[in-house]
């Protein structure tokens, strides 16, 4: 029973409540960093990492610090400070211990602090009153869903880069039209599969 529940949370995070094309969280990297597949993969890996860590850290702080102190209304300020310091900490550890990973993720890590998807995943799992395991699964799932969309989008943008389109559609409008199709596929396809 519990496993099935975790599975449905996972599927929710990856497909049905996909963070980018269904919930519109994390659109800045979706539009800004999908010009080529390599950077899209880099930022997605960093996002999965930070989302998982942030889910764990904010669960602990919310349950063991904010609730006993009756200061739940400070959750937004606390979470953003936790995420910002976590990103700094992760950057520091990765640079010391895993220099190869740092070279590929390096520039993307600081950008993630202001990524609304990370704060979004944390707030959504608090709003749904998930326990520790559920929060972590939801964090990982949201990160994987993010990665799938980023890779699909960057591949499509690389393919359509040299298409002949009117000059006013080139660039951002074209990216939004591609996003429309992706989103259409996700909305209609995953509605018909009962999970």
């Amino acid at each position: 029973m519990v496993e099935k529940e975790l599975f449905s949370i996972f599927m929710d995070g990856v497909f049905i409540k996909n963070f980018i094309v269904i919930q519109f969280l994390g659109l800045c990297p979706f539009i800004g960093v999908t010009k080529d597949v390599k950077s899209a993969a880099g930022i997605s890996a960093a996002v999965i990492f930070v989302m998982t860590m942030a889910s764990m850290a904010t669960y602990a702080i919310y349950t063991y610090v904010l609730i006993p102190a009756e200061m739940e209304f400070l959750n937004v300020i606390t979470f953003i400070v936790v995420i910002a310091s976590l990103v700094q900490l992760v950057e520091f550890i990765v640079r010391k211990k895993l220099p190869a990973l740092y070279r590929s993720l390096g520039i993307f890590l600081p950008l993630i602090t202001t990524n609304c998807a990370v704060l979004g995943v944390v707030l959504l799992s608090r709003n749904s009153a998930y326990d520790f395991t559920q929060s972590v699964v939801f964090g990982i799932a949201a990160g994987i869903g993010f990665m799938i969309i980023m890779l699909l989008m960057s591949a499509m943008r690389e393919k359509t880069d040299f298409m002949r389109v009117p000059s006013s559609i080139r660039g951002l409008p074209m990216a939004f039209f591609l996003a429309t199709m992706l989103s259409l596929a996700f909305v209609n396809y995953f509605w018909v599969i009962p999970i």
Binding site: S168, P173, T180, L184
Partner: peptide
């Protein structure tokens, strides 16, 4: 469709294209 997520992307794409066209 227009009030579902795809409609949002479509609307902003079209509006942005119109703005770019006027600018050009």
């Amino acid at each position: 469709t227009m009030i579902l997520p795809p409609g949002a992307f479509l609307t902003i794409g079209i509006l942005m294209a119109i703005v770019n066209y006027q600018k050009e």
